[in-house]
Design a protein around this nucleic acid. Structure first.
Length: 139
DNA sequence: GCCAACGTTGGC
DNA sequence: GCCAACGTTGGC
């Protein structure tokens, strides 16, 4: 089981929109970055991820599950681009802000901190547990 | 709204 | 295959 983090600007695709899709889930399309795509290719059914709002809110708000492995991105004919489908699992009881993450020395190595521009990124099991704890959430 | 950091593109 | 120019992202 691997853990991931998906980043989205609230105005582009919000957590509320993701939740509205329910168990059907939704394509995580529109990614045009090789690193991000490569991570999506590694994802397996049932892997879990965080849903992060970038820009204005800057906080992790929820938990998602991979419900379809990498397939061609339906928003482009360019066959270089693939994406996975994700579905909302649950809200974090308390959102975990970027500030909190930066203040916690245990999370100093998170990709979110190290490479803020990467929109799809891996999360270690250690980091996963700490963020859940900060969010007052158990699965 | 600014700007630093980064990724991609294309000319050579 | 290098690197300058450009575009985009996202924190501040």
């Amino acid at each position: 089981m691997a853990y991931w983090l998906f980043k989205s600007e609230t105005s582009t695709w919000s957590w509320d929109q993701q939740k509205a899709k329910g168990d059907a889930g939704e394509e995580w399309d529109g990614v045009r970055n090789y690193q991000a795509r490569n991570f999506m290719r590694e994802m397996k059914l049932g892997d879990l991820g965080f849903f992060y709002h970038s820009q204005k809110d800057r906080e992790i708000v929820g938990i998602v599950e991979i419900c379809a492995e990498a397939h061609p991105d339906s928003t482009t004919d360019d066959d270089r681009w693939e994406c996975v489908d994700i579905k909302a699992v649950k809200d974090l009881a308390t959102p975990v802000s970027l500030d909190q993450i930066k203040q916690d020395p245990r999370l100093a190595e998170m990709v979110l901190v190290k490479n803020s521009r990467l929109s799809v990124q891996p999360v270690t099991e250690e980091e996963w547990k700490i963020v859940l704890e900060l969010g007052g959430t158990t699965l």
